[in-house]
Design a protein around this nucleic acid. Structure first.
Ligand SMILES: [Mn+2]
Ligand SMILES: [Mn+2]
Ligand SMILES: [Mn+2]
Ligand SMILES: [Mn+2]
Lengths: 143, 143
DNA sequence: AAACAAATGTAGCCAACGCTACACCTTTGT
DNA sequence: ACAAAGGTGTAGCGTTGGCTACATTTGTTT
């Protein structure tokens, strides 16, 4: 038998979301820190995520191995082209989720928090619906 | 100095969401399986989540220790009162998120998937906004 | 009753992501 | 130049959640 696809459960989708979540958040953070601060040091990342520098260091090492970041010992952290692209698309998606939550009436502080988790679980279809909703204010009629 | 609260980053909130996610999903699943099938066996849970029975077993053991589930060897899994309450509130929150996504135009299959991840990251304020949005039907209807 | 199938339990492995403690490198200030 | 401070690296530990392999118990079928 040629391996029936046996569609993954929705829980498997959520697990997959979580397995890419760290990479997404880190490249996004590196991009933001470079943008705001001209460079991104390990301590900056550790503080940004509220973790120890050891945790940040190990994660950075893995993302280097995955081709998203570039580092030299004791030097600031840089994005590869792939990393920069991923950061950009994550920032856009994140911002759409955040502004959508605000558009339906959430305060911006809570929107900051909620969108940080939600952003990794929205399908392209959902992002598109959010985007349209934000753009046109209220309506979401079918068109 | 008396330890300034030093508000947790939004990433710490997301990590906290994830740390309670498994418990929430499992009690919800146990409740649904009992409701649909009169009892919940370990294999049912393993299949439900798409994991091995070993993984399900270890998680069930931890939830027993946490007072959410009750088990006897080789017997079906039961909810404690605390577990049943948690299951109910999670089911309600999950259903609000799911029906909200449908209300803004998402197909129900994708809503099933997305809501499975999103449900754990919505603050009470956001749930309330979702609930109101669903209640007054499409945004065009006024009340 | 015996055999077989299914469910459950247990041992032991791996990876991710937290941490502390300590060592080493770099930068800064005197 | 050198000491202090700060940033980085590494060793080692804990928890969670995946897995395979194998043992044991339970249920079903002959
Ligand atoms: Mn983000
Ligand atoms: Mn995030
Ligand atoms: Mn869920
Ligand atoms: Mn999540």
């Amino acid at each position: 038998m040629p391996q029936p696809p046996s569609k993954p459960t929705r829980y498997q989708r959520t697990r997959k979301d979580h397995s890419t979540e760290t990479a997404e958040d880190y490249v996004e953070a590196v991009a933001e820190l470079i943008d705001a601060n001209t460079q991104c040091r390990l301590v900056d990342l550790a503080q940004y995520f509220g973790v120890s520098h050891v945790t940040a260091n190990r994660i950075v090492a893995r993302l280097v191995k995955q081709g998203l970041l570039r580092t030299e010992p004791y030097k600031p952290i840089e994005l590869t082209l792939t990393g920069r692209r991923l950061a950009k698309s994550c920032q856009e998606r994140h911002e759409i989720v955040r502004s959508f939550l605000i558009a339906i009436g959430l305060d911006s502080a809570t929107a900051d928090i909620d969108s940080e988790g939600i952003e990794h679980h929205v399908s392209p279809q959902t992002v598109e619906l959010f985007r349209r909703f934000v753009k046109r204010g209220q309506p979401n009629s079918s068109d």
